[in-house]
Design a protein around this nucleic acid. Structure first.
Lengths: 190, 190
DNA sequence: TTTTTCATTGAATTTATATTCAATATTTTT
DNA sequence: AAAAATATTGAATATAAATTCAATGAAAAA
């Protein structure tokens, strides 16, 4: 892979990055190929030299999201509430460090949820974190007494949707900052 | 206003309702006029007999959102945390009663946030609830000791984003239900 | 019943957007 | 330096979506 290969790879990344920004702020359908091309100062023709279609570009971003966004996976936790605390802190930390994480996060959520997503792309997106992911931890925490009582699935849902809402806002308006992780963890705390 | 006027008004409502569903699940840009027409079993031509354009249809929905979604406005509260409790309970209650409320809620959020929204429509959408709306109540509550310490704007933002995330999920997947209001209120509780 | 008004359709048109392509410039290899 | 490979462009083409329109049917008014 000579210097040219690297150049090409670099350019692809620029395009992906610009597309991510636009997809997150305007939505996939509302983003025109010319928007992306303009945002990286390149002709549309050249853009198609790098990506075979708008959809392939989207697919590649969703694949990146699948890699880069998978649960920070809190380690060695004493109890369930600590798990939530660690998880949330790590996630917020990642988002602050690398702004594109929050954006990928939102992209994935849209790809999962929006009825407009091409089916094969949605399937990729669905491999990532889901509403149910915290259910077993919540059940354990309720036995311990560290997590509040209530239907575990509904609790998991409440926590996860809050995180999503916060990520969505942060992705578009990072200047507002992120809340303290513990505030959000208190949704599930006993 | 004969029977025909009523028929016409009724038909307009049907269209608005179908469009709301599609705009919320697929997004405005991704929703085709033919999708809407199909969803109310009517030809595209007829749809244009009722609404002059897709954008006008959108605008009318956003105007409805401005009416129907404005803060339930909690009344006679002893203290700040009660205000949050009442507000959240009322909002969740409204959403459960009338499913279109949650959808209008999401429509408004998208109209406010998405860079694709026509400017004059965004302006309408921006007249409704904002991130800052809870700041004064939070400040009062912090003096009282019923609201936790921390930057009021960031707290307001955290609470509101959580509500938005939950509404978004509920609008698309109502079968999952809504969390208990107090779980979410605990984000700001001292 | 005749006339008028409104509802309705589907095909034609226009407009917007994605995608291709032939031509040119630049870089790398020989 | 010549040849080959790759980058780049912008205009041409294709596709898709929005919007218009002329014609038809159904209901209301006369």
């Amino acid at each position: 892979m000579g210097v040219r290969q690297e150049q090409k790879e670099q350019r692809r990344q620029e395009i992906l990055c610009a597309a991510l920004n636009l997809f997150v702020t305007k939505g996939y359908a509302a983003t025109k190929i010319t928007d992306i091309a303009e945002s990286v100062s390149m002709s549309v023709g050249l853009l198609f030299h790098y990506f075979e279609s708008k959809e392939k570009l989207y697919e590649e971003l969703v694949r990146m999201g699948l890699e880069g966004t998978n649960s920070p996976g809190a380690q060695k936790c004493e109890n369930a509430i600590d798990y939530f605390a660690q998880f949330t802190e790590q996630l917020f930390f990642c988002m602050k460090e690398q702004p594109y994480i929050a954006k990928l996060f939102v992209l994935m959520a849209n790809a999962q949820r929006s009825a407009g997503t091409p089916e094969h792309i949605r399937e990729i997106a669905l491999k990532v974190n889901t509403i149910e992911q915290f259910v077993p931890i919540i059940e354990a925490g309720q036995k311990e007494g560290t997590i509040r009582q209530g239907d575990p699935l509904t609790l998991s849902n409440a926590f996860w949707c809050s995180i999503q809402g916060i990520a969505e806002q942060y992705a578009v308006h990072p200047e507002m900052g992120l809340p303290k992780a513990e505030w959000i963890v208190d949704i599930v705390r006993a």
